[in-house]
Amino acid sequence: MEERKWEDLECDCLVNVLGRVGMESLLLDVPFVCKSWYKASLDPSCWKHLVFPKDLDSERDFTLLDRFKEKYKIENCSVDAFTKFVVGRSHGNCTGLFLPNGCTEEVAKYVADECPALTALLLPSDILRCESSIVPTLIGKWEHLENLWLGSSENLVNIITQISLACNKFSGLCVSSATIQEEEASAIVTNLPNIKYLILRGAWIDFEDLVIILQGCKNLVHLDVRDCLGFDFDDEKVLELASNIKTFKCEGSMLVDYDDGVIDHDDLVYEGYISS
């Protein structure tokens, strides 16, 4: 029996396989194997789930962007240009997108226009840390959004308000470097009453504001408030109020900061959700 070759695989089957190999291989390896693989790699279905490395611009490491420029003999390519190029490969089919540090609001605007089918999105702190951020105005374009990772709690109240107006299937929120006061806690309870997954690891959140969330979000199945400042992890009232939450994590949280700098808050948003 004649052995079949990978390049002879039907295009639909090949696209199904290549859609699982990851962004780096799709850019740097797959297109150079043979003509059929190159053709299949251009199919938008291969680019539905795009998880960028956290850093694309680094003086210490040889990043994916550096390898891309070397492979394609490109002298200059900004983080924004590279990100938009990769996202554009999906031709509007992208449903999951983790953006890298270093990209600007211009990328957020591009994603809002080009990726209306998004169900999962990570927005890094560089896009959010601006009082005049346009992110809240873009939320309405992602009506299918279910899970959102934020690299900062800047404009959190406005973002949550827009989610409540536009995203009726929303179920999960993760915020890095968060400051959760009464306004933010009340906004979560009021605007996201059906939220199931909430990750605030490493946040500044007082006991009273945590109680607002615990008492108001009745449908939580996963709450992560590890390594927070503002309450003690073994507080009896906190543990009692959280007893009905399937997965409740509060280890390492304390009323005051005894060991500053233990947690790299910038990394927390890239940890991802727990699906069970």
Score class of each variant (00 low, 15 high):
264 D>H: 07
146 E>T: 05
127 I>G: 07
131 E>P: 02
257 D>F: 00
156 L>Y: 01
241 L>S: 08
257 D>S: 13
227 D>I: 00
247 T>Q: 10
245 I>P: 04
186 S>G: 00
229 L>A: 02
153 S>Y: 01
230 G>V: 01
224 D>E: 08
256 V>C: 04
266 D>Y: 07
253 S>V: 01
175 V>W: 02
201 R>G: 13
135 V>G: 07
143 E>P: 00
175 V>I: 15
228 C>K: 06
240 E>W: 05
177 S>A: 14
236 E>M: 08
219 N>H: 15
214 L>G: 04
265 H>M: 07
182 E>P: 00
209 D>P: 00
206 D>E: 13
202 G>R: 11
254 M>Q: 12
256 V>M: 06
209 D>H: 15
225 V>P: 01
188 I>A: 05
194 N>L: 12
182 E>W: 04
187 A>Q: 06
178 A>G: 03
130 C>F: 09
182 E>M: 10
226 R>G: 01
204 W>A: 05
150 L>D: 06
216 G>L: 10
234 D>S: 13
209 D>A: 00
179 T>R: 14
216 G>Y: 08
146 E>I: 06
127 I>S: 07
249 K>I: 07
126 D>T: 12
254 M>F: 02
176 S>K: 13
205 I>E: 03
222 H>M: 03
152 S>Q: 08
263 I>W: 03
203 A>Q: 08
268 L>T: 12
135 V>W: 06
221 V>K: 09
251 E>P: 00
251 E>Q: 14
159 I>Q: 09
242 A>E: 05
240 E>Q: 14
242 A>V: 08
132 S>T: 14
219 N>C: 14
237 K>C: 00
225 V>I: 10
259 D>K: 08
249 K>M: 07
190 T>V: 10
153 S>E: 01
227 D>S: 14
228 C>V: 07
257 D>Q: 11
152 S>K: 02
179 T>D: 08
255 L>A: 03
133 S>Y: 03
239 L>E: 03
247 T>H: 15
131 E>H: 08
141 K>C: 04
214 L>C: 06
165 L>K: 15
168 N>F: 11
222 H>N: 14
185 A>I: 03
136 P>A: 10
183 E>T: 10
140 G>S: 15
217 C>A: 12
236 E>Q: 13
193 P>E: 11
266 D>C: 06
133 S>L: 08
150 L>E: 09
169 K>E: 12
245 I>D: 03
130 C>Y: 11
252 G>R: 07
144 H>L: 11
199 I>F: 07
129 R>K: 13
168 N>W: 04
164 S>A: 14
177 S>T: 09
267 D>V: 01
259 D>G: 09
146 E>M: 13
198 L>I: 03
180 I>D: 01
137 T>K: 15
198 L>H: 04
152 S>G: 07
166 A>E: 09
